[in-house]
Lab assay of single mutants.
Amino acid sequence: QRITLKDYAMRFGQTKTAKDLGVYQSAINKAIHAGRKIFLTINADGSVYAEEVKDGEVKPFPS
């Protein structure tokens, strides 16, 4: 399943989102408010992988 960072954070909370991605909650808040195009893939085992689309390139998040 693929979902935006904002939607994932709204569904699970910023604290869990940060923990799942290995970053601080403040980084999640800042990324959402900056309007960054970050998409999360939720794997069947429950693990989460995030990618950011920037300038036409897709890069892992966090980099």
Rank of each mutant, 00 (worst) to 15 (best):
P62G: 08
V23Y: 05
I38P: 00
A27G: 05
A9K: 06
Q1T: 14
I42L: 10
F39T: 07
L21Y: 00
G13N: 02
G35F: 06
Y24H: 15
R11C: 09
F61G: 02
Y8C: 02
Q25M: 09
I42H: 04
P60H: 06
N29C: 13
G46R: 05
S47M: 07
P62R: 04
I32A: 02
F61D: 02
S26L: 09
K54A: 13
I42D: 01
I28M: 04
T17R: 01
T17Q: 01
S47Q: 08
Y49F: 13
M10R: 12
T41Q: 08
P60K: 10
D45N: 08
F12N: 06
R11T: 10
E52P: 01
Q14I: 15
S47I: 08
L5Y: 01
N43L: 12
L5A: 01
P60F: 06
K59I: 15
T15N: 12
V58E: 05
H33R: 14
K6I: 10
K30R: 14
A31N: 02
G56Y: 06
D7T: 06
V23Q: 03
A50K: 01
S26R: 10
A50V: 03
S63L: 12
V23A: 06
D45F: 05
L5T: 01
T15H: 14
V58A: 10
I38N: 00
S63M: 12
K54P: 02
N43K: 12
L5N: 00
I3K: 03
I32H: 01
F12P: 00
V48R: 03
H33T: 14
G13P: 01
Q25E: 15
I3Y: 15
A50H: 01
K54I: 15
V23H: 03
I3D: 03
K6R: 13
N29T: 14
A9N: 06
F39I: 07
T17S: 04
G56C: 07
T15M: 14
K54M: 14
K37A: 14
S47R: 09
K19C: 11
K30H: 15
N43P: 04
L40D: 00
V48L: 08
K59E: 08
H33K: 11
A27D: 15
A50R: 01
A34I: 08
R11D: 04
K37Y: 09
K6L: 12
D7V: 06
G35N: 13
D20I: 10
Q25G: 09
Y24D: 15
A50Y: 02
A50S: 04
S63Q: 12
V48D: 00
V23E: 03
L21V: 06
R11Q: 12
T15E: 15
R2Y: 10
V48A: 05
Y8Q: 01
A18L: 02
R2H: 08
K19R: 12
A9C: 13
Y24C: 15
P60Y: 05
D7R: 06
L5R: 00
G35T: 05
T15Q: 15
T17I: 05
T4L: 08
A44S: 12
D20W: 03
V23I: 11
A18V: 02
V48N: 01
S63P: 11
A27V: 15
F12C: 05
Q14T: 15
L40V: 15
K16A: 07
E57H: 12
K19G: 07
E51P: 01
G35R: 11
N29H: 15
V58Q: 06
Y8E: 00
F61M: 03
G22H: 09
N43R: 13
Y24A: 15
R11G: 04
F12I: 03
S63V: 10
Y8M: 01
P60Q: 08
Q25S: 11
V53K: 06
E52G: 01
T17Y: 01
H33W: 12
Y24W: 12
K54F: 14
R11M: 15
Y24S: 15
I3G: 02
R2F: 08
H33L: 15
S26G: 11
I32M: 07
D55I: 05
E51F: 09
G13S: 04
T41A: 06
D55T: 05
I3V: 12
I38L: 03
A9W: 08
I3W: 15
Q25T: 14
E51C: 10
K37S: 13
Y49T: 13
L21C: 04
K16Y: 02
E52M: 03
R11P: 00
T4D: 06
K30Y: 11
V53Y: 14
N43D: 08
E57Q: 13
K6H: 11
P60E: 06
S26F: 10
L40T: 02
N43T: 12
